[in-house]
Simulated scan of single mutants.
Amino acid sequence: MPDRRTQIMEAAVRVIAQAGVRGMRVEKLAAEAGVSTALIYYHFHDRAGILRSALEHINDRAERYAGDAFASTDPRTQLEHMLLLEIQGTTAVRENSIAWGS
């Protein structure tokens, strides 16, 4: 079971993927995470803190699932691996791609 902060960050990625950065509202995030807005403010202080942490979380997730791509030093192999990840469309990859595009 993920800790509360991770639970909130996973929910933040989903909200950003659905509504974009401008559409990310604390109330919407709280509902998605199943926590109170007070708990979100406790962990992240303000909306800017939430967004900063969410983008760091997206980067960390991308590094975890893309790490194998960089095991090779061949740029073509790296690119092929990254493209295969995008095509597979796992939830984490899809949410990351959408969130970064918003």
Rank of each mutant, 00 (worst) to 15 (best):
V35D: 01
D68T: 07
S97W: 04
G34L: 04
D3K: 00
H45L: 04
E32L: 06
T91S: 13
T73F: 15
R14V: 07
T37N: 13
Y42D: 10
W100G: 07
T91V: 12
R25Q: 14
I16N: 05
I40Y: 09
T77A: 15
Q7G: 09
S72N: 01
A33I: 03
H81L: 03
E86H: 11
E56S: 06
I58P: 14
H57P: 01
G49R: 02
G89L: 09
S53Y: 04
Q7M: 08
L85D: 02
E86N: 06
A62H: 07
E27H: 06
A66V: 02
A17F: 06
A12N: 06
L55P: 04
R47T: 05
Q7T: 12
F70Y: 13
I40F: 09
R64Y: 08
R4E: 08
A19H: 12
T73N: 14
H43T: 07
R52V: 02
I98D: 01
S36Q: 05
I87M: 13
Y65F: 14
H45T: 14
I87T: 10
I16Y: 07
R64V: 10
H81G: 05
G89E: 03
G101K: 02
R76N: 12
T73G: 15
E80L: 11
Q88K: 09
D60T: 11
N59Q: 07
